[in-house]
Amino acid sequence: MEAIFFQILVGLSTAMLYWVVSVGLTFIFGVTRVLNFAHGSFYMLGAFFALALFKWTNSFVLSIALGSLAVGVVGLLCERGVIRFTYSLPVAFQLVLTFGLVLIFEDLVRFIWGSVPQMIRPLGLGVVTIAGRRFPIYSFVIMGTGLFLWIILYFLLLETKLGLMIRATISDIELAMANGINPHLLYAFSFFFGSFLAGLGGALTLPMCSASLGMGERIIIYSFIITVMGGLGNIKGAFMSSLIIGISESLCAFFMPSLTIAISYVILALVLVVKPEGIYGEA
């Protein structure tokens, strides 16, 4: 029983990391209807930016904040520079374009930081003993960040004018425009904010794993699984799916280690068979 509790705790930490990254993808899709393959690259950039800033500032909090913001700006530039020209084109153009961005960012990172994975020095936060096992305190930081993000998003979407405009655009873009909402401002904001979240996710992983080329590939697959499973563009769905995937993966790693990778796909398949539109449906 104690082992299960411990695995759930580990799963919660993983789930919150998935949530931070996948809600960015969900947010971008909800507002712009663009399936952004480059989201994984923004995650990778977040890790490398934070790595560089940490070496420079020696402050982890500052490097996470500035690194994530920098990724947000990169996302904004991508949207204004190229992606916005594909809004009225078939979805295949968006997929090819954002995949092209993946290749560009991979090469840029290789050019600047090289191919060797890089880590930051340990933060020294230590561990706590839970159920007789050592649990990193930093995992609580990730859980806290995920929950804080949930509160921020809740406040942004339900309590602010911008949030109401975003919800209206997610609900019906044509009607939102007929009611005077300029969608291009919201598109730009969603790419900034969504990319910021991907960068935040990447930066948050630094104390646990190295920044490396290709680190965005795994996360983009999980982000898509979570986004589709929760219901395309549905933020509540992304939260719930992140919890399901994160905790299932952790429990599977304990009880059936050989199925750890497969479990997410199995759950996605089961959900889609029962509810093809995802847990909460498309936004």
């Binding site: 004018k161 109401l164 405009m165 919800r167 009611n179 005077g180 909402i181």
Partner: peptide, 10 residues
């Protein structure tokens, strides 16, 4: 909220 949206753009 429906009525608020067009007002926000004014």
């Amino acid at each position: 909220e429906n009525v608020k949206i067009p007002l926000l753009s004014r």
